[in-house]
Design a protein around this nucleic acid. Structure first.
Lengths: 163, 163
DNA sequence: CAATATACATCAGACATTTATATACCTCAG
DNA sequence: CTGAGGTATATAAATGTCTGATGTATATTG
């Protein structure tokens, strides 16, 4: 069943996932980084979040997420409020305009991708739907010790990065 | 079968695909843009390619692909030769070092993702394998009129972009 | 052979991301 | 209640990468 040997499996998933995301996203004409759309979606489905939470979720550095939120805030897609329980923290909330932008992005993505999908069988569509869930889970599992108090090795190393 | 309504399907696939790719790729410690690894993989599996072909395949502008190839060439991962059949064109070829870098990337990706995959059942693994194929096909279908002489509308519009 | 199209390179400008550092706030031992 | 140390975010500086415009060489066509 696997045309690709197991050691190529992960890399192929990374390559095809990123290529599809880029090409489909560009087809929508969106001029915003993909991470911005992911942040908006996270805010929509998981509710308001702290900057640090969002950064960890996307494997971004905190300054990069601050900058991303700055841009979204400047465009009126999110609002920044101080966490009443911790004055250091900032809670980011999706605005009506942000929700509208997400909706528009989804519509454009659907318009450009669904035609190709319609050439697939029901089983393949089910595969893609399931794959989206699995990719989310795999990504979460690849994040460094996010679950609370796991007590695993604290990974003291520096962990270089990419992009 | 679908927890997500159809108009969210494409956007969710984009979001989860890009997030997984980023997180898994960063876990490998690679300091190279993902597009560089995709280019190397393309050169490995599809053989030497022109700069323009590679740019179209990744939906990159030609100057961006030229710069990407410059960096790969500077690191000795690809070589540049003039196409004997067209002196304007440049053919990019994978080197031994380039192949080695791909192999190393695959090994690191596997090392970081396979543990999470092992918690999945055989059916889910099959879903992911199939999904990689489907994502590739969908991405190809989203590319603007790449197939030769289709005679379709030449898409005269400007098509803004992103990232 | 001249006019036009193609393939790639180069350049300038814009952005995004990283590391390092600063600031404000919280927690808690003493 | 005070000060040390940790946490959440902001800011600064450096780096890298993308796009659009343009230049150069080659190919194609009438």
């Amino acid at each position: 069943m696997s045309a690709t040997p197991p050691d190529q499996f992960a890399a192929r998933l990374i390559a095809q996932g990123s290529r599809f995301a880029r090409i489909a996203s560009r087809a929508t004409g969106s001029s915003r980084p993909l991470v911005a759309m992911r942040v908006l979606a996270t805010l929509q489905f998981d509710g308001p979040q702290r900057i640090g939470q969002l950064a960890a979720h996307e494997r971004f550095t905190q300054p990069a997420m601050t900058a991303t939120i700055n841009r979204l805030e400047a465009d009126g897609l999110v609002t920044r409020t101080t966490d009443p329980s911790d004055a250091r923290a900032v809670v980011v909330t999706l605005t009506e305009a942000g929700l509208a932008e997400m909706t528009a992005f989804r519509a454009k993505a659907a318009a450009h991708v669904l035609p190709a999908m319609e050439r697939l069988g029901a089983d393949d569509l089910a595969v893609l739907a399931r794959a989206a869930d699995l990719l989310e889970k795999l990504a979460d599992d690849c994040l460094p010790a996010s679950p609370r108090r796991v007590g695993a090795a604290p990974t003291p190393s520096k962990e270089s990065d990419d992009h």
